[in-house]
Design a protein around this nucleic acid. Structure first.
Length: 194
DNA sequence: TTGTGTTTTATTGCCTCC
DNA sequence: GGAGGCAATAAAACACAA
C-alpha cells in the first residue's frame, strides 16, 4: 500500500529531532511574505517553500493554518472595535438630538403661553371696542400715515403656525414609537435601545 | 529565580469537497 | 475515501513583574 501524504508528514516529523523550536526570523519573514500574496497556497507551493526554508511541508501547512486563524481573530477584533466606535458615536448623536428636542419643547411651551395670553387680551379688547377687520377677519390697524397694515396680531398668527409645526415635529419625533425612523427600515437593533 | 500570562507550534476531531 | 480546511485545545517557548 502506498503511503499517504499524512504518513509522509508524520514520518518526517518523527525523523526530526523531536524538539519543538520556534521558527527563525528569516523563516517567519518568508512565510509572512508568502501569506500576504496567498493565504491558502497550493500543496506544491508549500512543499517548495518548506524545502527552501528547511522545514517539513507539514510544518509549513500548519503554520499557514495557524496564521489564518490568527489573522481571522485579529480581523474580528478590528471589526468589533469599529462597531464599538460607531455605537459610541450614535449614542453621542442621540444625546445631542435629545437635548435639541427638549429645548424645542421648552420653546413650544413658551409660545403656547404667549398665545393663551394674547387670546385673553384679544377677548377683552373685543368686548370693549368694535374692531375693524380685513377680508380674512383679521384686525386692521391704521398708522399715522393712514396706511392699513396687519398689526401685532399677524405676528402672533405666525407664531401660532410655527407652534403648530413644532407640535407636529414633537409628535413625529418620537424615539419610543420609532416613527422618526423610516418604517421600512424596521430597525430592531439594540443600538436604539438606549 | 519563579510564578504567571501570552504567543507560537502542533495535535485532534470533525466537516466538506472531489 | 483521501485531501485539506477549520475550531478547539495541548504543550513548549517566551516575556516579564515581583
Amino acid at each position: 500500500m502506498a503511503p499517504t501524504n499524512s504518513d509522509i508528514w508524520a514520518q518526517s516529523i518523527l525523523c526530526n529531532d523531536n524538539m519543538r523550536r520556534r521558527f527563525s526570523d528569516e523563516q517567519i519573514k518568508s512565510l509572512e511574505n508568502m501569506f500576504e500574496t496567498e493565504s491558502r497556497p497550493e500543496l506544491r507551493t508549500k512543499q517548495q517553500l518548506a524545502k527552501r526554508l528547511g522545514l517539513q511541508p507539514r510544518q509549513v501547512a500548519i503554520w499557514f493554518q495557524n496564521k489564518r486563524a490568527r489573522s481571522k481573530s485579529k480581523q474580528l477584533e478590528l471589526e468589533y472595535r469599529m462597531l464599538q466606535i460607531s455605537y459610541d458615536n450614535l449614542g453621542s448623536k442621540y444625546e445631542l438630538l435629545k437635548k435639541e428636542h427638549e429645548s424645542l419643547l421648552i420653546q413650544l411651551q413658551r409660545l403656547r403661553k404667549l398665545m393663551e395670553k394674547d387670546e385673553n387680551e384679544k377677548d377683552v379688547i373685543k368686548s370693549e371696542t368694535e374692531v375693524k377687520q380685513d377680508d380674512f377677519g383679521l384686525p386692521l390697524c391704521e398708522d399715522s400715515r393712514g396706511i392699513d397694515y396687519l398689526g401685532p396680531e399677524s405676528d402672533i398668527l405666525d407664531m401660532a403656525q410655527i407652534a403648530d409645526g413644532l407640535s407636529e415635529i414633537e409628535n413625529g419625533y418620537n424615539f419610543e414609537s420609532r416613527t422618526f425612523l423610516h418604517d421600512n427600515t424596521a430597525c430592531t437593533s439594540p443600538l436604539w435601545e438606549f
